[in-house]
Nucleic acid binder design. Structure first.
Lengths: 264, 264
DNA sequence: ACATGTTTGTTGTAAGTCCAACATTGAGGC
DNA sequence: GCCTCAATGTTGGACTTACAACAAACATGT
């Protein structure tokens, strides 16, 4: 058995981390019949390229959220999104039927909900939300069909829209690329179609959006702001927006720092 | 700042691994202001419960596929499954429409397919397969709706069956818990229902099963062996089985070691 | 107060890892 | 052949972790 090339060896290491959570330098060295130093150099090189995460003595697979598209966004304003997720979770009670949109903010909500002992049903087009809430023993999750788009970690398209038409929820949580006193919008047409459908299929709809989304208008309009029943955000300085929300009868919920909605 | 209870500490560690790929014992010890030994004991306890994976010097988040019961099996015969996946992938060509079942063996097939520059459509009820193939630029993936069951990394139930009824494929790949000269079977009733449906919706059906599945009968019957067009496995010693396959006109494909179907 | 069991800390030894500096090997290019 | 560069191996010392056995602290029920 000839020794593998550097390229081949590194490919196999990355490949292995698709199935294994973590690898150890000493094991790899033995398996490939090279020195631990060589493996160490491989791991360091791969880590720089972001293909894996170094650990003491080995390496671990990269994070699930490390998908190309989402990576950058997911890393920014994480704390804000977590607070928003916590706040939103306080609205949910046992017996509810929820629709949860695909998006990085809604993913945080799912994480919180998965740890609560509430019995509720969730309909979602987000693969991430489905995975996270699937871990809950008390919640049941119904995943929509559709064309898989990994950049958004969800399914989209005609099948998804058709499917949603056949269900009804009493509460929905959606995300958006931007919102103004007038309307909510997003940059992704396929995603907007889903959001619009979700709104029609739910009694109440809540918008989850951090403060950076305020005042932003993107090219695809989702709906007028008044179509929302509530806005959950992390900060709201603009008095004009406050008034617009009040006039549109949209409840404003601010997830303030240190004031988590649920006891830790 | 009071010291946290064992319970709280362990909760936080698990929680952290939802956002971080790996943690280090020394860091945790410092952060929680306890000894490394305490953290080590925490990690070992959590690892036994399957909530994380130990690494040298710390822990990593558990794999998506690492469900309690499956963990042991999933680690063994990985090489065999990879070979089977490679072999199966040689059957696929551009323009094909595939249905791929949920299962650990089919997941390997998906991994191989994702790296080929073929243009094909895939319909699947496996969240894992959808994620993996979603990374391909050339393949398009249609995910089935259904109730999410994370133990199998897929969706199941009436919605899934209904959905499959509306599609037609020219090739399908399914897994099974066991197969004999007579029939194919599995331990999971919901999964069997899906497999049966897949068989009716595809022109050709291939069974992917490693050699440990041979001669095993589980409680839920999927179909007679003759319903398959091909069996892809890694070893086949039994002459009786060979003959049965020939009589049933099931093509036997053996993925032998070192004879990968595709160049590495 | 007492006994009991759990949790955590302490300690010492063995083993593993990290890092840097330097030696060796191997594949092209001239 | 010779040179050069990249890849790998080697080595030694500093640091880190693993493991096991035992001690101390803490909670809990009687």
């Amino acid at each position: 058995m000839d020794k593998l090339s550097k390229r081949e060896r590194q490919d196999r290491i990355v490949n292995r981390l698709n199935t294994t959570v973590a690898v150890r330098i000493s094991d790899l060295a033995e398996e490939f019949d090279v020195t631990t130093e060589t493996i160490r150099r491989d791991l360091d090189a791969l880590a720089v390229r972001g293909l894996l995460a170094r650990t003491y003595g080995g390496a671990a697979m990269r994070a699930l959220t490390d998908e190309p598209g989402i990576a950058a966004r997911a890393q920014t304003y994480v704390a804000e999104r977590e607070r928003i997720g916590l706040k939103a979770a306080t609205l949910v009670k046992s017996g509810d039927v929820l629709i949860i949109d695909a998006g990085s903010t809604t993913a945080h909500l799912a994480k919180v909900l998965a740890q609560l002992p509430l019995e509720f049903k969730v309909i979602t087009n987000s693969i991430g939300v489905a995975r996270v809430l699937g871990q809950s023993d008390t919640a049941s999750v119904l995943l929509c069909p559709g064309d898989v788009r990994l950049t958004e970690e969800g399914v989209f398209g005609a099948e998804t829209l058709d499917f949603l038409d056949r269900y009804h929820a009493n509460m929905a949580f959606i995300g958006a690329g931007g919102f103004t006193a007038k309307e909510i919008s997003d940059a992704d047409a396929a995603g907007v179609a889903i959001k619009r459908k979700i709104i029609t299929r739910s009694e109440r709809v809540y918008l989850l959006a951090d403060h950076t989304k305020a005042g932003i208008t993107q090219f695809a309009t989702i709906c007028p702001l008044s179509a929302m029943d509530g806005l959950i955000t992390d900060a709201m300085a603009d008095d004009g927006m406050r008034q617009a929300l009040a006039e549109a009868q949209v409840e404003l919920m601010i997830a303030e720092q240190g004031k988590a909605g649920l006891a830790a």
